[in-house]
C-alpha cells in the first residue's frame, strides 16, 4: 500500500510539497483552512521583481496539485498532531481525525496586524491602508481614496511590525522593502501623475534583481526615498494625512502631507501555526516561527521525527525560496519513509 502523507496548509509551500510528494508516488492529503487553496497568493496582484501576475504561479500550483493522488480538503483547520508509533493522528477543529505516515507542516505566515502600530492609525484614519489592501486595489484596477477621489501623493512606510521590539518582532521580514518598491512602481503605472515617497530605515534589497528594481523605481518612475521611519500620523482638516518622520540623511525632522499612506505589514508566525505547534509539541524560536532542527542543514526538520516544515512557518521567505524549501521538505519525507 502507498504511504500517505498529510500536508497542513494549502499555500505556496503546501501546494508545492503536495505536488512533489505525488510525483514520487505518495498518497497526499492537503488541508487548507480557507475555502480554496493558494494562501496569500490569492490576494496578491503581481509579484516582485518582474511584476509577473500572481495568477501564473497559482496556475502552476493548481496544475501540479490537480488530478489523482492528491486529496485537497478545504475549510478545515488542523489543530493537533499526535504520534503513535509510525502513525500520525491528525485532528481538525471540528474533531475529525485523519492518519498519516508522515506530515509536512506548511502553515505559513500571517500579515502583521497593522492596527497594533497605533501611531499610524490603521482602522482610524480613512486613507491609511496596508500593502495587502493596495494589492486588492490593484486587482480591482482602481486606486481610490475613501471619498472616491484619486490620490496625488502617496506615502509608503517600510518595516511595519518588523524590526520592532515593541511589537515583539526583532526580525526583518525581508520582503517588505522589495514589495514597497514594486508597489511604488505599480502606483506610478496606475497613476502616472502621482508622487510616491518611501520611508525606510534601511533598504534591504537582497534578492535577485531587487536592487535593480530599486534603481528602476528611482530612475524611471521618480519614486522618492526618504531614510527615516514614520513615527506619527494624523489627519488634517482637509482629510489628508500629516506624517512626521526624520529625514535622517538631511538630519532634520520632516513633515509631509499625503493623500494615502501604505503600511508595509511584516510577516508573523500564523495563528493556526502557533496553535498547532503548541498542541503538538513542535518547538518554536524567540521569533515565534517554528524552530528547525538545524539552520544550515536541517531547515525542514522539526524536533519530531516524521514531521517536517515547508515555507514561511519557519521564517519569512519569498515564493522562490518557499518553493525550494517545500521541495527540500519532500526529500526529508522520502528519506524518513524509506527508513521506517
Amino acid at each position: 500500500m502507498n504511504k500517505h502523507v498529510v500536508v497542513i496548509g494549502g499555500g505556496v509551500a503546501g501546494m508545492e510539497a503536495a505536488g512533489q510528494l505525488r510525483k514520487t508516488g505518495f498518497e497526499v492529503s492537503l488541508f487548507e483552512k480557507e475555502e480554496k487553496p493558494g494562501g496569500h497568493l490569492n490576494k496578491w496582484y503581481k509579484l516582485f521583481p518582474d511584476r509577473r501576475p500572481s495568477s501564473e504561479v497559482k496556475e502552476y500550483l493548481d496544475n501540479i496539485t490537480s488530478g489523482e493522488g492528491i486529496k485537497i480538503i478545504t475549510g478545515k483547520t488542523i489543530e493537533k498532531i499526535v504520534q503513535n508509533k509510525n502513525q500520525f493522528h491528525i485532528s481538525d477543529k471540528e474533531g475529525s481525525e485523519y492518519t498519516a505516515d508522515a506530515v509536512i507542516v506548511a502553515t505559513g505566515f500571517d500579515l502583521f496586524k497593522s492596527a497594533r502600530k497605533e501611531e499610524y492609525g490603521y482602522g482610524i484614519y480613512d486613507n491609511v491602508i496596508t500593502s495587502a489592501d493596495l494589492e486588492e486595489m490593484f486587482r480591482k484596477g482602481s486606486i481610490t481614496l475613501v471619498n472616491g477621489r484619486t490620490p496625488e501623493t502617496i506615502g509608503i512606510v517600510h518595516c511595519v511590525g518588523s524590526r520592532d521590539e515593541k511589537m515583539g518582532n526583532l526580525y526583518c521580514s525581508k520582503l517588505c522593502c522589495v514589495t514597497a518598491v514594486k508597489q511604488a512602481i505599480e502606483i506610478r503605472e496606475h497613476l502616472p501623475s502621482a508622487k510616491v515617497f518611501c520611508f525606510y530605515m534601511d533598504m534591504r534589497m537582497g534578492g535577485a534583481y531587487y536592487e535593480e528594481l530599486y534603481r528602476e523605481a528611482q530612475e524611471e518612475w521618480g519614486v522618492n526615498f526618504i531614510r527615516g521611519k514614520v513615527s506619527e500620523v494624523s489627519e488634517s482638516i482637509n482629510n489628508r494625512l500629516v506624517i512626521k518622520s526624520e529625514d535622517t540623511l538631511a538630519g532634520k525632522p520632516l513633515k509631509m502631507l499625503v493623500d494615502m499612506l501604505v503600511l508595509m505589514a511584516g510577516m508573523e508566525m500564523s495563528e493556526e501555526g502557533l496553535k498547532l505547534g503548541d498542541s503538538s509539541g513542535l518547538k518554536r524560536g524567540d521569533n515565534r516561527f517554528f524552530s528547525p532542527a538545524d539552520h544550515h542543514f536541517g531547515s525542514n526538520k522539526s524536533n519530531l521525527k516524521g514531521i517536517y516544515y515547508a515555507g514561511t512557518c519557519t521564517m519569512p521567505m519569498n515564493i522562490t525560496e518557499t518553493i525550494s524549501h517545500a521541495r527540500a521538505a519532500v526529500m526529508d519525507v522520502i528519506e524518513y519513509l524509506k527508513e521506517s
Binding site: 529625514d247 538631511a250 532634520k252 525632522p253 520632516l254 513633515k255
Partner: peptide, 14 residues
C-alpha cells in the same frame, strides 16, 4: 520678555 519664539527646524515638505 527676554526671549523670542524659536523657529522650527522641521522640513515642511509641502
Amino acid at each position: 520678555f527676554g526671549f523670542s519664539i524659536s523657529k522650527g527646524r522641521q522640513i515642511d515638505y509641502d
